[in-house]
Design a protein around this nucleic acid. Sequence first.
DNA 1: CGGGAATCTGTAACCTTGTTGCATTTTTCC
DNA 2: GGAAAAATGCAACAAGGTTACAGATTCCCG
Lengths: 157, 157
Amino acid sequence: MDLVNRPRDPVDTNTRTEALNLLKAKGLYKTRARVAVIGVLLQSDSPMSQDQIAQRLRHRYDRVTIYRTLASLRSAGLVHRAFTGNRTWQFELSRNCWEDQCHPHLTCSRCGKTHCLVGLEPPIACRSYNGFVIHRQQVHFEGICPQCSPCAHTDGH
Amino acid sequence: MDLVNRPRDPVDTNTRTEALNLLKAKGLYKTRARVAVIGVLLQSDSPMSQDQIAQRLRHRYDRVTIYRTLASLRSAGLVHRAFTGNRTWQFELSRNCWEDQCHPHLTCSRCGKTHCLVGLEPPIACRSYNGFVIHRQQVHFEGICPQCSPCAHTDGH
DNA sequence: CGGGAATCTGTAACCTTGTTGCATTTTTCC
DNA sequence: GGAAAAATGCAACAAGGTTACAGATTCCCG
């Protein structure tokens, strides 16, 4: 595929600028793959797996590139990953939380999407318990999201 | 290896009897692999991965057998899997908890062992939140266990 | 600008874990 | 004791993560 004329990544100008700023702030190389991956995550309200990111970018980047891009963004602190019970990591931008102390996630049993439960405080924030020192906590739910259960919020019956 | 004279599984008589009772109560076939796997789990105070179980049994059983043994024990409700943040399932007997509502686990960053935090109540037991219906919750910690941090319980400094 | 050093990318390949198919063996029950 | 039902071992595949290495891109400084 011609490099010059190949279709552009699905990232608008504002998102692109924000991505470039994030990279600059961390002193990372500004590469097309990184801008694209950050752009996808900026536009997503829920964590995404590597494969979801690759699909969103129409497989224009090799999966190893996505993998390493996420690894470098993660080590720079821009991105963190959440574990959601299946065997794939879910990545999200470190905006108001980070990997050690993150909001819970809920994976919908019906649509399969993973949602952030940002209103729900990480429950057990204590640093130690009964001789155990807690450095990191991860909370994961399985259930039904509002979109898949329109009457779920009226749980009176 | 001769089947008759091959070394016995590391299961004492009492444990074996208990395992047989559990299998009988569920109407499952009493096979050597199942008795061995249940025995290992009975003697363990923490969840174990398939590979750990296979190692404990000195690879006397094929890993597919371990896999399917655990699957049948799980579907019978004798065993459940826990969420520990890495890509492998950890199995434990369903004694005072089950898969949907289980105590938190802590994986020690130093020794790698996963511990059950049975004294710590599952924190967010609510059935619904903000339109989300919660069917199952899993809590995982990373930190240091008491054995690896002798002064961890005196966190005064 | 321009060029070299540092870094990133794509391809290939490997590893671990989970999973299924099928022929053989074991268990159960009458 | 024997037939039906179920479990086991072996082979093989799948998915995701990870590493090696050569070639391409980015950065920085003159």
